[in-house]
């Protein structure tokens, strides 16, 4: 319990029939820190959370949460964790207060304390007014907040949030992020899963990127971004026909290889020379009479990281709209064309 790691998992494996959900995952999350488990749908994020929260038994490997082994002492683990599953599992036929009181009672706080704790949390999550209304009448954002409040009833040491902002509008997401900030300030260890790169960067101290049941990278956002090679020079010509001439200018002036991304009408190149490169490229573009819409330095996003690590965009099919709805998250380049 006084361990420096609130979550320690070694070589976790899980199979469902023939399909491998986890192919051996190691995790160590320092007490009081926030770990973001990042990956596309089907990467194994939820499976990992289910094992760590004692809902699912691994086929191999070991895990300790809050100092207790998930297989040997599941009940001790459950006393010390809070879990917000992917779909908010609040009980629609109970009021907000009844939901929280019930969970407090099942944590054996005693009915009176459970109720007072419920009222306290409703207040904290701006649900006090709706506390006596049935949860099925709540808006999506309110349900999420109630769900999060429910995980906090017994003062958990470790909080598991499985895609906490999925299905929320940008406002609801901002609200939830703000609440999480407060929790983390209070010292709760948090493991959250997300498909939103922006969210992992915003909330997590350490990001663990998973894909096909394996960890493919870990580190803080800065470290991961360095893996794609730092800042990029970015030029967006007004006319798509100018893409090739622009790339040629960049290669000549800066002396590095430039990349054309046609769908987004961008020319990109590593910008080791920094601001000086921008100035000389700008001069050359004016001389050549090429109009540009945008010219500047582009910081790689975690999308770029994901693209580099897995060769596929982080947001696949149905999630594409979700990912791009995150403010500031740029779409991963769809097709790259390397200029020789």
């Amino acid at each position: 319990m006084s361990s420096t790691f609130a979550i320690e998992a070694h070589d976790l494996r899980k199979r469902y029939g023939d399909s491998v959900a986890l192919a051996g995952i190691d995790l160590s999350v320092a007490t009081g820190s926030v770990c973001g488990l990042l990956g596309p749908n089907g990467a194994g994020k939820t499976t990992a959370v289910r094992i760590l929260t004692t809902l699912s038994r691994p086929n191999g490997g070991t895990a300790r949460v809050a100092g207790f082994d998930v297989l040997e002492s599941p009940r001790e683990v459950r006393r010390r964790i809070g879990l917000a599953a992917q779909d908010a599992t609040v009980d629609g036929l109970l009021s907000g207060l009844e939901n929280l009181t019930m969970i407090g009672e099942l944590h054996h706080l005693g009915r009176a304390i459970a109720r007072r704790r419920g009222e306290e949390l409703l207040e904290q999550f701006a649900l006090a007014e709706a506390g006596r209304k049935l949860a099925k009448e709540y808006s999506g954002g309110m349900r999420r907040r109630l769900d999060l409040a429910a995980t906090l009833v017994a003062g958990p040491e470790v909080l598991f949030l499985d895609e906490p902002t999925t299905g929320l509008d940008p406002r609801g997401r901002n609200e939830l992020w703000a609440v999480l900030d407060t929790l983390v300030d209070e010292g709760t260890t948090v493991l959250l899963t997300t498909q939103y790169l922006e969210e992992a960067e915003r909330l997590a101290d350490e990001i663990v990127v998973v894909d096909h049941g394996r960890v493919i990278a870990r580190g803080d956002a800065r470290h991961l971004k360095r893996q794609v090679g730092g800042d990029q020079l970015l030029i967006v010509p007004v006319n798509p026909d100018d893409l090739v001439p622009v790339a040629a200018i960049v290669e000549r002036v800066v002396g590095v290889r430039a990349t054309i991304d046609r769908p987004t009408r961008r020319v990109m190149a590593p910008a080791a020379a920094g601001a000086a490169a921008i100035a000389s490229v700008a001069t050359e573009l004016v001389t050549a009479g090429i109009d540009v819409e945008d010219l500047g330095l582009h910081q790689p996003t975690l999308d770029d990281v994901f693209m580099t690590l897995t060769g596929t965009p982080a947001a696949t099919d149905g999630n594409a709209s979700g990912a791009s709805a995150v403010p500031g998250a740029s779409a991963a380049p769809a097709a790259e064309e390397v200029l020789q």
Binding site: Q124, F125, A126, A130, S139, G141, R145, N174, E175, T182
Partner: peptide, 12 residues
Amino acid sequence: TEMIPNTAASQT
């Protein structure tokens, strides 16, 4: 009962 943005944190 809907709240205005970001009151969750300040409320806390």
